[in-house]
Write a protein that binds this DNA or RNA. Structure first.
Length: 517
RNA sequence: GGUCCCUUCGUCUAACGGUUAGGACGUAAGAUUUUCAUUCUUGAAAUAGGGGUUCGAUUCCCCUAGGGACUACCA
């Protein structure tokens, strides 16, 4: 009884993330990796990275490194596979497993589940075009295969001679007729297909001696003892083929469990998020920057200022929720809270605004020291010298008002350098007639102070305001303008205290000079 | 076109068949503040439509509509 539960708890969990190195991974792929990772960690299982490079024509240099770097940046440690290829079920790169696939592909032909086909791509294209012209769809399937060039329709001698002459061939799967395929998807429940609507997929091609995705996928999942296949919904239509393949090999009883994740959709418009959506929407779709051939760079989350934990957090909540109101999670908390049963079925539209909010939340939760360390690097780039304590304190005062570390400078620049200009709007609004004279006098009063605490500065300022019978708000805003250069920032008296007496007085006098009457 | 999947505020989502349908992002208003921001309070905002089943459907079933994925010698 409860076979499934036993499978879940007793069977060793081994999951794989199996991207194709055809370019940078996008966040849909990253989320698939994340869900696999969370599932593996939660069950004390193994997280495997397998590179599916069975299409020799689509190989992109650097893509594999990119995948590795992305996972590393996000904090997903690969247990088997990856660049080092560690693990006992290797190689973990499909292009290095040629002989294995060849053997299994031929086995399928021998057992009658597959056949050799000689139709050229050009011929098939022509058939498709022809069918389209008469508003039909061409399929290489149980209805058409006997009229095409393959080992089912051709004589044994002909097949032999074609192969011996070096003519390229492929092995196709011989999809059986009228078989009901039932699967029980972990996120979708029961899903059924009939093989009558399926075609004879190419499984292996002689030209590059490589399998196509379907064969490689089944063979490797079997050989690598994969327990659960967690992948995007775009693979759902392939499930019946895959099930039949397991059946053909006699592995169906130990077939992995499937879980098809909902797609991540474009923020606006229709369809699933694609690699080009980032440029239009002004948000990254890649974890890391990726250099394009034309010299441009596709923006990455890292370079755009996102924390890896923020990306992980927001991706986890796209298609999954903990069942309560919690939204902020660390990776460890996600591992604890995650469950595949709570993964949604419907696609989730990506929301760039909420992405920023996640980053802001994680930023606020970091210590002032940690943010200061990150910010100090930026200060160095700007050539700004600043006392470490000053940076920590300044950052602590403003961190709640930014989404990214990169936005910090605009909020704290005045702590480190005098205003280079005064916001005209604020000047117009706050720099009234009575101000220049008052400020000059205030500078004198401040100069005469023997202490320099915020409260003392405030007392001195307030006393003069009272004496001159001016408005507190009026003066404070003008005072702020002299120190900050604009109408923003944290408590003014704290700013004055932090930049010091001499600097404060200088800024007041400079402002009077520059802005004048 | 065919196959399959999906459908709760604009968006992400919650809700043993019984709730004034909740939260978050965004948005609007107000309060506070020496400014901006923060913060706080409040508001607007959803069960696609139609049939069933049921004492009672957001929830279960069917149909319709809409959306999506797939339909390569790509993954």
């Amino acid at each position: 009884m409860q076979k499934n539960n036993d499978d879940m708890t007793n069977q060793k969990v081994r999951v794989r993330f199996a991207p194709s190195p055809t370019g940078p991974l996008h966040i849909g792929g990253v989320r698939t990796a994340l869900f696999n990772y969370l599932f593996a960690r939660q069950h004390g299982g193994t997280f495997i990275l397998r590179i599916e490079d069975t299409d020799s024509t689509r190989f992109v240099p650097g893509a594999e490194e990119y995948i590795n770097n992305s996972l590393a940046w996000l904090g997903m440690q690969v247990d088997e596979g990856g660049l080092e290829g560690k693990g006992e079920y290797g190689p973990y790169k499909q292009s290095e497993r040629r002989e294995i696939y060849s053997k299994y592909a031929k086995q399928l032909v021998e057992t009658g589940w597959g056949y050799y086909a000689f139709d050229t791509p050009a011929e098939l294209d022509a058939l498709r075009a022809e069918a389209e012209a008469s508003k039909k769809a061409f399929a290489y399937d149980m209805h058409s295969r006997l009229s095409l060039k393959n080992s089912l329709s051709l004589s044994e001698e002909e097949v032999k001679s074609r192969m011996e002459s070096g003519e390229p061939w492929v092995i196709r799967f011989k999809m059986p007729e009228n078989v009901e395929v039932h699967t029980n998807d972990m996120v979708r429940g029961a899903v059924a297909f009939n093989t009558n609507t399926l075609d004879d997929k190419v499984l292996y091609k002689s030209v590059d001696q490589l399998p196509t995705y379907h064969l490689a996928n089944i063979v490797d999942d079997r050989l690598m003892k994969i327990s659960h296949v967690i992948r995007g919904e775009e693979w759902l239509p392939s499930v019946p083929l895959h099930v039949m393949l397991y059946r053909a090999f006699g592995w169906e009883d130990e077939m992995p469990q499937f879980a098809h994740l909902p797609l991540i959709l474009k923020p606006t418009g229709k369809g699933k998020l694609s690699k080009r959506d980032g440029d239009k929407g002004g948000f990254p779709v890649f974890p890391l920057d990726w250099k394009l051939n034309d010299g441009n760079v596709a923006a990455g989350y890292r370079e755009s200022g996102y924390f890896p934990e923020a990306l992980v957090n927001l991706l986890a909540l796209l298609g999954w929720n903990p069942g309560d109101d919690r939204e902020l999670f660390s990776m460890d908390e996600l591992i604890e809270a995650f469950s595949i049963e709570r993964v949604n079925k419907s696609g989730a539209r990506f929301d760039p605004d909420k992405a920023k909010w996640f980053n802001q939340q994680h930023l606020v939760r970091k210590s002032d020291e940690e943010i200061a360390t990150l910010f100090t690097e930026e200060l160095k780039e700007k050539g700004v010298e600043a006392a470490p304590e000053m940076v920590v304190k300044a950052v602590g005062l403003v961190k709640e008002r930014v989404n990214f570390v990169s936005e910090l400078w605009d909020q704290v620049a005045f702590f480190f350098q005098a205003p280079v200009q005064y916001d005209p709007k604020v000047v117009k609004k706050r720099w009234k007639e009575s101000i220049p004279g008052f400020m000059t006098e205030l500078a004198g009063k401040l100069d005469a102070m023997t202490t320099w605490q915020a409260e003392d500065i405030k007392a001195t300022t307030a006393a003069l305001i009272e004496e001159k019978e001016l408005g507190f708000g009026l003066v404070m805003n003008a005072f702020r303008l002299t120190l900050v250069g604009g109408g923003f920032g944290p408590d003014l008296m704290t700013i004055a205290e932090m930049i010091g007496k001499e600097e404060t007085i200088n800024r007041v006098r400079t402002a009077v000079e520059v802005i004048g009457a």
